[in-house]
Simulated scan of single mutants.
Amino acid sequence: MAEQKLAAEVRTEFGKGFARRARMEGLIPAVIYGHGAEPMHITLPAKSTTLAVRVANALLTLDINGEQHLALVKDIQRNPIKQIIEHLDLLTVRLGEKVTVDVPVHLTGELAPGNVYNQEMTTVSLEAEATHLPTAIEVSIEGRTAGEHIHASDLVLPGGSVLLADAEALVVHISEATEVSEEEASAETTEGSSVSTETA
């Protein structure tokens, strides 16, 4: 995954009042920590940062006072209503360093007709080089039929990545689609309405 380069500024102000002013100025408060160093509090440009962290495990190259800092996004705090980014936690990493990350599992393809799937794991834990982190692992369910299982050990990992999850952990289970007749659906609806009336 390509590194995202951003200009950052060191900040000395804290608190909700400062955070509110920063966001009004198009900035996002953030903190960088790791490798035993003192946490560094910074602000980042909101627009370019929001675009950069749209992918999982975004790797950022930060220019802070002329010095380059390589950092991995570890936590994103968003406004629960507006969903804008309010704060970032960043982990300092080094070239060649191995880090542990949770990578999204994306399903591709279509099942054989008359089947449905249940995705038991939406992310999988891996160890990978900080500068070669996968943004997702794709799993094909094309043509699969009832009774088939996909376990963590079946995942095709990017080069240099090591699976940390239980190899026998179930990722996807395929089963037959259950058809509900119109009469059964009507009966369930009527029964539900009856219960609602009695308890009202």
Rank of each mutant, 00 (worst) to 15 (best):
P134N: 07
V103D: 09
A112D: 03
L126N: 07
Q68P: 06
A71T: 06
K98G: 03
S161F: 13
Q119L: 06
E168P: 00
V162W: 05
H87S: 10
G36K: 04
L91I: 13
H87Y: 08
T190Q: 15
E38A: 03
K5N: 11
S186A: 15
V10D: 14
I174Q: 01
V31H: 07
Y117I: 02
I42P: 14
I84V: 08
G17C: 14
I81Q: 08
V103L: 13
N118V: 09
H41C: 11
P113F: 02
A187K: 13
Y117M: 05
E176Y: 01
T61R: 14
I150H: 04
A130D: 08
R11S: 01
E142V: 00
V171N: 03
A185H: 00
A185C: 03
L59I: 10
L60E: 14
N65E: 15
N65I: 10
Y33R: 07
G66W: 02
T190C: 14
L155D: 03
P39E: 10
L107W: 05
V93L: 05
Q77A: 01
E110W: 11
E129P: 06
V103E: 07
G17I: 14
P39R: 06
K16L: 11
V162P: 10
V73I: 08
T131L: 11
H69Q: 14
S186R: 10
S153I: 02
I141W: 00
R21H: 10
D75H: 00
E188R: 12
D63C: 08
A112K: 01
R94H: 10
V195I: 09
V156M: 06
T145F: 01
V53G: 00
A200V: 05
D75G: 00
S194T: 15
E142P: 04
L107A: 08
K16N: 11
I64W: 01
Q4F: 12
H41T: 13
G159W: 09
T92V: 15
E183T: 08
P29L: 09
L27M: 12
D166T: 04
I84D: 05
G36E: 05
H106A: 06
E138G: 08
H35F: 01
E179S: 02
T135F: 04
I42E: 12
M121C: 09
L111I: 00
P113E: 04
A30F: 03
V103P: 08
K5S: 13
A2H: 08
L60I: 15
P104Y: 07
G36V: 04
V116F: 05
D102A: 10
R54Q: 14
G114M: 03
H35S: 02
I84C: 05
I64Q: 01
A46Q: 11
V55G: 04
I42C: 12
R20I: 09
L111P: 03
P158A: 06
S48Q: 13
V171D: 01
A8M: 13
P80I: 09
R94P: 06
G192P: 10
L70N: 05
V171Y: 01
G66D: 01
V195S: 13
L91G: 12
L170R: 08
E110T: 15
G96D: 07
D154P: 02
E25Y: 09
A165G: 10
S194P: 15
E38Y: 00
R78E: 09
I137Y: 07
